[in-house]
């Protein structure tokens, strides 16, 4: 039975580490949904977050293979309900789409750029919230989308 898991891990902030992580994932044929990386705390370490839909033994192997990489310092595995997770999306829409915004709960987006024929939304939420917001806009009104992938922390 597959289940969605968030794997949050700390790595050395050095050249080649992202490659080593993604190369291992490719080499072992792990099928991941997203991966994000950013520096945290101080310049020497980064935090990576990957999401995966897999059975128990696959998740176990991902964790062990990550720990086997010398540049990986610590690994945490969370179920979605154990973590606070967010993703950022930037969505450029034609101005026709503005009227559709009224129907959307206003808590997860703001307009950060406008022009005569288009505007850009910054959307912050869970991947599901972003998905459901994007579904409201007809394909023809969407000019460009960029999404960061999910990052997460354990719930308080």
């Amino acid at each position: 039975m597959t289940q969605s898991k968030i794997i949050s891990f700390i790595v050395e902030n050095k050249p080649g580490v992202l490659f080593k992580v993604t190369n291992m994932i490719r080499r072992r044929c792990f099928n991941i949904d997203s991966i994000t990386v950013g520096t945290v705390d101080h310049k020497e370490i980064s935090k990576m977050t990957l999401t995966i839909d897999g059975d128990e033994s696959t998740v176990e192997q991902v964790v062990k293979q990550l720990l086997k990489l010398i540049d990986v310092l610590d690994v945490n595995v969370w179920s979605p309900n154990e973590a606070m997770s967010r993703e950022l999306a930037l969505v450029k829409l034609s101005n026709n789409a503005k009227k559709l915004l009224n129907k959307v709960s206003d808590s997860i987006y703001r307009i950060i750029d406008t022009s005569a024929d288009a505007f850009t939304l910054e959307v912050v939420g869970t991947p599901e919230e972003i998905d459901s917001l994007l579904e409201r806009f007809p394909y023809s009104e969407v000019q460009e989308i960029a999404r960061t992938g999910m990052t997460a922390v354990r719930k308080c």
Binding site: S57, E60, Q61, K64, Q65, L67, K68
Partner: peptide, 11 residues
């Protein structure tokens, strides 16, 4: 010696 060998091919 290698934790990743545990349960890799056989539980």
């Amino acid at each position: 010696a290698d934790p990743s060998e545990i349960n890799k091919n056989k539980r």
